[in-house]
Structures are given as C-alpha cells and as structure tokens.
C-alpha cells in the first residue's frame, strides 16, 4: 500500500519534470535542425512559471472547470499506466482528459477555439481506434490487457514485443504524433498556425489556465513515450533507447513535414494504420 502511494506521488512529481525537460530538449533540437541556437533547456519551465504568475483572465467559468478535469485525468491516466493497470481502461481515461479539453474549448463562443475543438475531436477519432487495436494486439500476444502482465510476459519470454508486433508498433508511433501535437498532425492546437486558427483549442485560455493545459500535456507526452517503451519492456536500457529513437523521429518528422488536412489525417491513420495493424495480427494468426 505504502509502495503504491509512493509510486503515485513519484509519478505526479516527476512526470511534469520529465515532460518539461523533454519539451526543452525538443525546442533545442528543433532549433538546431533549423540552424538556430534555440532557447535554454529550462525554457518550458520559465514559460510555465510566467504563465502561472500572470493575471487570471477568463471567457466563462466553464472553461476553468474543464481545464481542471483535463489535468486531473491526464495525471490519472499516467498513474494508472505506471501502476500497470488495464490498457483499455487507460485509453478510456485518457479520453476523459482529451474530452474535457474539447468541451472546454467548445464552451466558449470563440470561432477559433470551436474550430480547434472540432479538429481535436477528429484527431481523437484518428488515434483512438488505433490505440485500442494496439491494446488488442498486445492482448493477442500476451493474453492480457493488464500492462503489468504484458511486461511480465516479455520478461519471461525474453523477447521484446517490438519483434513480434513491428507493424503495430509502427502504426502506433504514427498516431502518437497526433497526441504529441507534432506536424503533420498539429491541426488543433497549432503551434505554428496562428494565421489560420490562432491557437485553436487553447485560444481562449490564458495565464494560469493555459499553464494547467501545458502541464496536462506534459503528462500526456510522458504517457505516450511510456506506451512506446512497452514494446521493449524486458530491458530498461533498450526501452530508453527505443523511446529516445522514437522521440527523435517525431522531431524529425515535425520539422520536415507540413501540416496536413484532417481528411488526410483520418484517411491515412484509418486505412494505412488499420491495414498495417490487421496485417500484423493476421500474420500472428498464421505463424
């Protein structure tokens, strides 16, 4: 019991730290890829503290309510992940968080945040089934939806899931680009599209409330990378290397691609993603 409490506290404290640092690394590497020097490593924390200290300003009180819900459930999904709980449940809990963010953006009359929210819904439509199918694929190999048992299976068999489910892994990393808000799928919060939809889903949030969304996003980034690590869970070192490689790949993808339309996003994730995943599962059945 004590152990569980410690793990929960540790997650709540360390995850935003890791998320912030990752974002800092992200910004430096992105800058270097563009031939710039980039901000200091701790820049995301400066931003966060600044936002926190700014005057609170709202459009309506509903959006504040939803921001809190988003943060709490982003934290909860990561905590459930760290505790090795049921993967299907984690995906649905993640949905509560994202859903709350969408509701928060839809609650204001701002045209920009409404467009952002609708695009975010479509993003959820794109990544949600693929994540669920990933969970099913893990189940078909390991016989359990529980993450702790998925990890135990790999330790016992000594074979990382990456080798068994390479295509499923590929599909999953592809859709996780959406969750990490990276180009070509950065269409709802739009870090680089303010001519088009201002800041999309976060347009109407400012100051401390924006900081809440930012922290929640850091939790989600950590969870996303954790999902990657599941595929090589029998060795800490290899898991870290895999996570690092995927992270770098996402950054590269972010810098060399343009933002695409939602139609392209949905078609590519559904058709290609499902095709690859099904191919992999079919192969498992035949082998």
């Amino acid at each position: 019991m004590m152990e569980v409490v410690l793990i929960i506290l540790g997650t709540i404290l360390l995850a935003p730290l890791a998320g912030g640092l990752l974002t800092g690394v992200d910004r430096i590497i992105t800058a270097r890829m563009q031939g710039r020097q980039g901000p200091p490593l701790l820049q995301p924390f400066y931003d966060l503290i600044k936002l926190w200290r700014k005057e609170a300003q709202i459009t309506n009180t509903l959006q504040v309510f939803y921001a809190v819900i988003y943060l709490v459930f982003a934290v909860l999904s990561l905590v459930l992940f760290v505790l090795g709980q049921n993967l299907l449940l984690i995906i649905f809990v993640l949905t509560i968080g994202s859903g709350a963010m969408v509701l928060g953006a839809l609650s204001t009359p701002s045209p920009y945040s409404q467009i952002g929210a609708n695009r975010e819904i479509l993003q959820m439509l794109a990544y949600d089934p693929i994540l669920l199918i990933t969970a099913v694929a893990l189940y078909l190999v390991t016989g359990s939806f529980k993450l702790s048992e998925v990890v135990a299976y790999q330790t016992a068999s000594g074979q990382p899931l990456l080798f068994v489910l390479p295509l499923v892994f590929l599909t999953m990393t592809y859709v996780l680009t959406i969750k990490m808000r990276k180009s070509p799928f950065d269409i709802s919060a739009s870090h680089h599209a303010h001519q088009e939809i201002v800041r999309g889903i976060t347009t109407e949030y400012s100051g401390p409330y924006l900081a809440l969304l930012e922290i929640a996003h850091w939790f989600e980034v950590v969870l996303v990378l954790g999902l990657v690590a599941i595929f090589w869970a029998n060795s800490w070192l290899m898991a870290l290397i895999l996570v690092g490689a995927v992270f770098l790949l996402e950054l590269l993808l972010d810098n060399i691609t343009a933002r695409l339309t939602y139609r392209w996003m949905l078609q590519s994730t559904w058709v290609v993603g499902m095709g690859l995943a099904v191919l992999n599962i079919a192969y498992l059945y035949l082998a």
Partner: peptide, 16 residues
C-alpha cells in the same frame, strides 16, 4: 466519441 463530445460541447456553452 465524436457525436457525443460535440453535442455535449454545444449544450454546455455560452453564446457570448
């Protein structure tokens, strides 16, 4: 998810 979320968002919103 899609049709529930957008509908819920619509009713729980303010017009101005």
């Amino acid at each position: 998810l899609v049709f529930w979320l957008r509908w819920a968002g619509s009713i729980m919103s303010t017009t101005k």
